[in-house]
């Protein structure tokens, strides 16, 4: 489904990596490993189409992602370093707004249930500003559920999460893969999930 060939990325004038190639099929996930500054984030940003790679090709369902555009982005979910949540909005509003920007409407009850599942019960109506760092990340994780994308690209998804939340996220990724989804993630932790492959930068 996702196939990467001869990929090379540069930052500034420095070549981070070159000749990177891998394929990802439904139900598989990829663990991107590497030291700080090895280019993990740069790779993920190239994969989602934010920064074009210096060389190589990224194909989704056989077509280059640059040409697919919206069709690729509809099936894609990217969570970067930043929270991508609005501090002045409540968790519920954040999820609703994010979905509306994608051109979709969220079912109120499902959304609330999702927030509760991530331990945000009683905080749905509190501006995100008043939540802790871990709770903010949980709002993001709720978005994994409400967004319904095929390909998840997650940059350090386990940072700032407590043990319980880490288990919850692992389970969530497991469910996603079992349903035929795909995931690419960077993490310094060892990952307990099956069907995983690793790429070292």
């Amino acid at each position: 489904m996702l196939s990467v060939t001869d990929l090379a990325c540069v930052r500034g004038e420095r070549r981070l990596f070159s000749d990177l190639a891998f394929d990802l099929a439904p139900g598989e996930w990829l663990h991107v490993q590497g030291e700080n500054g090895a280019g993990k984030t740069t790779l993920l940003r190239a994969l989602v189409g934010l920064s074009p790679p210096a060389a190589g090709e990224i194909r989704w369902r056989g077509a280059p992602i640059g040409r697919l555009g919206e069709d690729y982005r509809r099936e894609l979910l990217y969570l970067g370093h930043h929270g991508a949540v609005k501090e002045d909005l409540t968790p519920l509003e954040n999820l609703r707004v994010a979905a509306a920007l994608d051109g979709r409407q969220l079912d109120e009850r499902d959304t609330l249930a999702t927030l509760h599942r991530f331990g945000l019960k009683g905080r749905e109506e509190l501006p995100v500003r008043f939540l802790s760092a871990g709770q903010k990340r949980r709002v993001l994780l709720a978005r994994l559920v409400t967004r319904q994308a095929t390909l998840w690209i997650l940059d350090e998804p386990f940072t700032a999460l407590d043990v319980k939340a880490v288990d919850m996220l692992s389970a969530l990724i497991g469910e996603h893969l079992a349903a035929g989804g795909m995931a690419i993630l960077t993490s310094h932790q060892t990952m307990p999930m099956a069907n995983g492959r690793a790429v070292k930068l």
Binding site: V48, L50, G80, H81, H82, G83, E87, A98, L101, G103
Partner: peptide, 19 residues
């Protein structure tokens, strides 16, 4: 830009120009 929402806007299925 600072909180990362801009990236999400760019990656949304809606064309960025419209947003």
């Amino acid at each position: 830009h600072a909180d990362g929402t801009l990236e999400q806007l760019a990656l949304s299925p809606t064309p960025l120009g419209l947003l």
